[in-house]
Design a protein around this nucleic acid. Structure first.
Lengths: 234, 234
DNA sequence: ATTATCTATAGATCTATAGATAATGC
DNA sequence: ATTATCTATAGATCTATAGATAATGC
């Protein structure tokens, strides 16, 4: 008797019956509604009532799916770093045999930018919420610290001597992540976005490490090939 | 009968009388307490009660000084951009006569980094709160947009041809501000900070525009002289 | 008289638990 | 029988207003 996949049919009907016509499970509907509201109004600024209203269920019904509001946020956070984490370890394993540090960094940064750009409701804004400093979200923060460390290692390996001499590996990691996450601000400001931003951002990451235009172009070419391979491997 | 400066002596004593021994006015104490709490728990996550407790007064007494919680945030925001705005217009007026765009940008970025690093309670985190998207804080956001435009103009003027050809002035502005504000993240992560970070960050801004180490060194020297002059002029 | 607090309190939330109910699944 | 909702509701906030009070200022 393992748990059956949710069929979206059993259970008492919703009071507003129309709201059930969705291909998503109730749990997914809740996560989606919460993501939109957390991004717009913040965690504390979003009530369980507001989430339920958006889904089309009663406030109390949320507790059938999640133990509390904080579990919803935790789920959103862990779901949103997972793709990055998986991609990054695959990419780092190919360095320096299949790909140079600069190529790997280009692949990683453009992939992160792309993910942040395409994610529904600009979920990256959740990373900026003060509430995630709470120890309750340690697991998420530790994953981000791990990601930053990889950015730092790749960045330090790719940087020109001058930069490596003046900026520590830790600092490089923070700088590079910060650059990749500029996408969050761009989306927040509702500026028109285009896919070439991802490449622009990745190129900026390499430029801040002191690489020349020619070196950046080479890294971009390397990244193109390996990105396809890494995505297939997942 | 112009309003007298607050003396900190008149009025009914506080229930907890010790809390009044401060060189700050009550209004300043409230702003300071709110800044710390907003940075830590967010705007919606901070109750008027929590602010009052930290000051050592009753929750209701806040309303003698501010019409509401939102006015406290508005005051904090406008106070925190003011120094940047004043400095930046002074600096931009000296371009290109007294100083090159690269020198001005170095001066601006290192000054912003320094301000963000020294501000009490890491006030820059307030810029990241979702609540400031509310139209109520339009004045603040417009000031930031103006600041970003200046970063964009100076950055576009300083950038090498290759970068200027691929990144719009708007995007340059967003990228540069994002780099300067990495200080906010560094402080949040409680990493040990040092003053040389300001110069490192300013240098990173120029490097992302494609400048060489020699050009960055020259810009730094220019900036040193003009920063002193500009600060005196304020 | 003015200032800056206090106490009292209204009214609106907000989170979460308990238990009932209306579907489907077997 | 199981699932996914519902209704009812407790208890804890939270913001803000009204009016009293205890200082200083003149």
């Amino acid at each position: 008797m393992t748990s059956a996949p949710p069929t979206n049919k059993a259970g008492r009907p919703r009071a507003n019956n129309d709201s059930r016509r969705s291909s998503l499970t109730s749990r997914e509907q809740i996560l989606d509604a919460a993501a939109a509201l957390f991004a717009e109004a913040g965690f504390s600024g979003t009530s369980t009532r507001a989430i339920a209203d958006r889904v089309g269920i009663r406030q109390q019904s949320l507790y059938y799916h999640f133990a509390g509001k904080d579990e919803i946020l935790a789920e959103l956070l862990s779901g949103s770093v997972r793709p990055s984490i998986e991609f990054v370890s695959d990419i780092e394993a190919r360095v320096p045999g299949e790909i140079s540090p600069a190529g790997a960094l280009f692949a990683l940064a453009s992939m992160d930018a792309r993910t942040l750009r395409n994610t529904p409701h600009n979920i990256g804004t959740l990373y900026l919420l003060p509430e995630i400093q709470d120890p309750r979200y340690d697991a998420f923060r530790n994953q981000r610290i791990a990601l930053r460390a990889i950015y730092g290692r790749l960045g330090a390996a790719a940087a020109v001597a001058d930069v490596r001499a003046t900026v520590s590996e830790d600092r490089i990691g923070v700088l590079l992540i910060q650059l990749a996450e500029v996408v969050i601000q761009l989306r927040r400001d509702e500026e028109s976005e285009s896919a070439d931003d991802d490449q622009t951002i990745a190129a900026s990451c390499l430029r801040v490490l002191g690489l020349s235009a020619a070196q950046i172009g080479a890294a971009r070419d390397e990244a193109g090939a390996v990105t396809a391979a890494a995505l297939l491997a997942l």
